[in-house]
């Protein structure tokens, strides 16, 4: 079996240097009942110009990982091992002041529920002033910063008059998400991390956010990492995909490989089959049997084995490793055995 060398027009443009890298990253949560490992030994590298999608179901650790990529883990969580490298610099060994300068100015994060990431009693315009004030190194002249923000608002299809003098509560959900994206870009970061940017939006606003992110990448050259549970959004936006299951990365591959290659993790196939597709008549979608395991009751061996149609004895004993074949890394015993035979 030949691994698909599907270099799409989009993938071809994204073979830049590695901007952001996680090396064997683990995140632990110390709870009264014991320590849970939410992210377990995950490595990933994001190249300049990539749109990197982190995919998985609720509770698989994808949002925790997105926060950990800027060394932000909410208590009682801690980064228990590994490191994050931003253009080769270790984020774990940065001082608090270095981190403060780095976040937003080099890597910006748009958290899930952009709705609640604004101060409700201060106008959007005043919140912009706070950001510019805190980072004089980026915009020594604040007027230029304001002008740049107006330009960004235009890019996210809003007008300054619609936004600046208003409070968060006066904006619709879709508008808030786009204002949050404009905010994230105002200090000209080279990497933008978004947690569930399209969740809780209707289809019209989803489309708008997808188009806006595509624009930002093309016009500002910003590298994008986004977290989602929706493979349809991945298909529209991503160049590279990392699929997570129960805290582990189970497949990392270019976009077309995830959707069309023969060499895919059974979980990826199951996720794809579970989507009702508007372009197909009839009830063709099928749900994944069983549930995501609780992180305090992980099964031995492969974590997906209890729900997997390919599971065999080895899967219930040994944890499979990610094995890379021409840029398509899969962690699955049956799939990888198949690969070595061919």
């Amino acid at each position: 079996m030949k691994p698909e060398s599907a270099v799409t027009a989009e993938a071809a443009t994204s073979a830049g240097d590695v901007v952001l890298e996680a090396r064997n990253l683990s995140v632990d949560f110390a709870l009264p009942a014991g320590t849970l490992r939410a992210v377990d030994d995950v490595s990933l590298s994001v190249r300049d110009g990539d749109v990197y999608a982190l995919v998985g179901e609720s509770g698989c650790g994808k949002s925790t990982l997105a926060g950990a990529l800027v060394n932000l883990v909410p208590k009682p969580g801690v980064i228990a091992g590994g490191d994050i490298l931003l253009r080769g610099r270790s984020m774990r060994s940065m001082t608090a002041e270095e981190l403060r300068r780095t976040r937003m100015a080099e890597v910006a994060v748009v958290f899930q529920a952009a709705m609640s990431s604004f101060n409700p009693v201060v106008t959007i315009g005043a919140q912009l002033e706070h950001v510019l004030e805190a980072h004089p190194e980026v915009w020594p002249d604040r007027r230029e910063g304001r002008r740049y923000f107006d330009h960004l608002l235009e890019m996210v299809r809003l007008s300054p008059g619609q936004v600046l003098g208003r409070f968060e509560s006066q904006l619709s959900g879709g508008m808030k998400q786009r204002v949050a994206i404009a905010f994230a870009c105002v200090l000209k970061p080279s990497v933008l991390i978004l947690d569930e940017p399209t969740t809780a939006l209707d289809v019209i606003n989803q489309r708008l956010v997808i188009d806006v992110l595509r624009d930002l990448r093309e016009r500002l050259g910003v590298t994008i990492v986004f977290v989602t549970h929706d493979l349809s959004v991945v298909a529209e936006l991503a160049t590279t995909v990392g699929v997570m299951y129960a805290g582990r990365m189970v497949q990392v591959a270019p976009i077309d490989t995830i959707f069309y290659s023969e060499r895919r993790h059974p979980y990826v196939r199951a996720l794809l089959e579970s989507i009702p597709n508007v372009l197909e008549p009839g009830r063709t979608a099928t749900s994944i049997p069983g549930q995501v395991p609780r992180m305090d009751r992980l099964p031995p061996g492969c974590r997906f084995a209890p729900r997997c149609p390919l599971a065999e004895d080895a899967c219930r004993k040994d944890d499979p490793e990610l094995i890379d074949d021409h840029g398509n890394a899969v962690a699955c015993h049956p799939v990888n055995r198949e690969g070595t035979k061919a």
Binding site: V203, Q206, R207, D230, S232, E236, F259, Y260, N277, L279
Partner: peptide, 10 residues
């Protein structure tokens, strides 16, 4: 507007 789970079609 609806995203489709198929990059080529998208």
């Amino acid at each position: 507007s609806l995203p489709v789970p198929d990059p080529r079609r998208a």
